[in-house]
């Protein structure tokens, strides 16, 4: 155990600082990926609720593909394929040279695309959970479309969506570990580097697991409080 303290410590040759730094990258990656995923998910949910067949089809296709294909495969696609696509796009616009995407941006995008597919389901379910009477009442008050959305539908949508979003957030946090395969030094990757270099995989993977657990429980608790303590709490949950 003395060995474990030395390896995980903050003195010279200890990996403690590196692991904590990497954990903050994990949090940042997850937060940005989740936020961008909210945009994708919102668009996809809106698409699925539209009357246009094409939009519905596209949105459903997006959700089906990225919920059904292993996340690892999606990450490989963006990693290897993303730059190729961008480079050829650059060339078609008359540019020259190569366009590369940094691993952090690729990772954020991958998480956004994957979590967007899950978030879409949550938003769609939340929208459908809003009582038809609310729409009718908002119309009757003479609110225009934007006002209806902003003042009546959106606040309710968020409260119905919160529990589901909490689940997606947990998924995102754990998915972020997969970004390690494309070389971004987040928590999982740092643990791997340390395990490889010290040949002490057990200690470092346990340390990584504990850090993930800590992040998951702190943020999970935050979601829980948001659900419980928010003034616009739903009557029954």
């Amino acid at each position: 155990m003395v060995d474990a303290f030395r390896l995980l410590g903050f003195q010279h040759g200890g990996w403690g600082a590196a692991l904590l730094m990497a954990a903050s990258v994990t949090v940042l990656l997850s937060v940005l990926g989740f936020a961008l995923g909210a945009v994708f998910g919102g668009l996809a949910a809106a698409g699925r609720l539209r009357n246009s067949k094409v939009l519905r089809f596209l949105a459903l296709g997006y959700c089906t593909v990225f919920r059904g294909v292993p996340d690892l495969l999606t990450i490989y696609l963006l990693y290897y394929g993303g730059s190729v696509a961008l480079t050829s796009l650059g060339h078609s616009l008359g540019g020259s040279g190569f366009v590369g995407v940094p691993a952090f941006a690729t990772g954020t995008l991958a998480i956004a695309i994957i979590s967007g597919a899950y978030q879409a389901e949550v938003y769609r379910g939340a929208y459908l959970a809003i009582d038809q009477g609310q729409h009718d009442a908002a119309c009757a008050l003479g609110l225009n479309r934007l006002q209806r959305l902003r003042q009546v539908i959106f606040p309710q949508l968020l409260r119905y969506a919160l529990p589901g979003l909490g689940n997606v957030w947990q998924l995102v946090l754990k998915d972020s570990s997969l970004i390690s395969v494309i070389g971004l030094v987040e928590l999982m990757r740092q643990a791997q580097i340390a395990a490889g270099s010290t040949r002490e995989p057990f200690i470092f993977y346990i340390a990584a697991a504990l850090l993930y657990l800590a992040i998951a429980s702190v943020t999970g608790h935050a979601f829980y409080r948001l659900e419980r303590k928010a003034p616009w709490r739903v009557r029954s949950a």
Binding site: L36, F40, L77, L78, G81, G82, A85, L86, L89, G97, F98, V99, G100, V101, P102, A105, T108, L109, A112, I113
Partner: peptide, 16 residues
């Protein structure tokens, strides 16, 4: 996918 990738990478800043 490539379109989304393109738009997003503009947001994130390209590396030339």
């Amino acid at each position: 996918i490539s379109r989304i990738a393109a738009i997003a990478s503009v947001l994130f800043g390209l590396v030339q």
